[in-house]
């Protein structure tokens, strides 16, 4: 399966034109998403280097509650190579080309899309979070299903002692250039053995939010009474989430097999 080909996925084209020539059949692959976040949760205090008024640099951890954590996920490619990146994985072992939305606060699995897979061992994966940059495009294009055009819509409340504020982040994970992916070379180990298999993408938004320095966010407010904080894309907090989504706290991709009927 070739990546970054506009129009009909190459896998489908290969099936139509060369069925049987490779001696290897593909089979449908169901891809689901689910949230594994367990709010409320505690984020340890991490006082900034300098903390002056009007900062609230009290001792103690932050209690964080998430009200919304909608994640756009897809397309997804799994590769036989140990590092999934277009140059090392020009053809994927399994793929799902659609984009779905995962409510990271809801453990109910949702269908993200129907893909295709060959038998074999996948060792790495690459994917977008609902915003892709194809070779034929001059800019990143959000999928219509991405919430508000974003990779992540995050809303929550952080509280420590008498300090409490709501925070909001609309995070866009974009490839660094056309033809690349928002996440590359993610480690995955999955043996695809045949039909009746599916994948489940599990997202723990709490792991992302736990990297935020909420003391720094509190210090950055215009005043102690500011109750609504937007984590803008130039903020350290936004970058903490971005780094978690693309490197430090990647979603877990697990395989599932249905019993033989």
């Amino acid at each position: 399966m070739s990546n970054r080909v506009p129009g009909v996925p190459l896998l489908l084209a290969l099936l139509l034109t060369a069925c049987g020539e490779t001696g290897q059949d593909s089979y449908p692959l169901r891809v689901e998403g689910t949230g594994t976040t367990t709010p409320p949760f505690v984020v340890p205090a991490r006082l900034p280097a300098s903390c002056a008024a009007p900062c609230a640099c009290d001792a103690g951890d932050w209690q964080v509650t998430l009200e919304q954590a909608d994640v756009a996920f897809g397309p997804l490619y799994l590769c036989a190579s140990e590092r999934a990146e277009p140059d090392l994985c020009p053809e994927s072992l399994a793929e799902m080309l659609e984009v779905g939305v995962i409510d990271a606060l809801d453990p109910t699995p949702v269908l993200l899309g129907e893909g295709q897979a060959f038998t074999g061992r996948a060792q790495s994966a690459m994917w977008d979070y609902g915003r892709s940059w194809l070779f034929t495009q001059t800019v990143v294009r959000p999928d219509p299903r991405a919430p508000g055009g974003h990779s992540l819509v995050l809303r929550g409340t952080a509280t420590k002692g008498s300090t409490s504020f709501r925070f909001a982040a609309d995070v866009d994970v974009d490839a660094s250039e056309a033809g690349l992916y928002g996440v590359q070379s993610a480690p995955v180990l999955r043996d695809f053995a045949g039909p009746r298999e599916s994948l489940q993408v599990q997202i723990d938004a709490g792991a992302w939010v736990s990297r935020i320095d909420f003391d720094g966010v509190a210090c950055g407010r215009a005043s102690d009474s500011e109750a609504d904080v937007t984590l803008t894309r130039t903020s350290i907090a936004y970058n903490a989430i971005y780094g978690a989504m693309t490197n430090a706290r990647l979603p877990t991709i697990v395989g599932q097999s249905s019993p033989t009927p």
Binding site: G182, Q184, R233, I236, N247
Partner: peptide
């Protein structure tokens, strides 16, 4: 030094690193 402060996107990209960059 947390990575979130030292390596802001889009000037830096940590995806593809061999392990988590904290």
């Amino acid at each position: 030094a947390p990575s979130a402060g030292l390596f802001p996107a889009p000037d830096y990209s940590l995806t593809g690193a061999p392990f988590a960059i904290d």
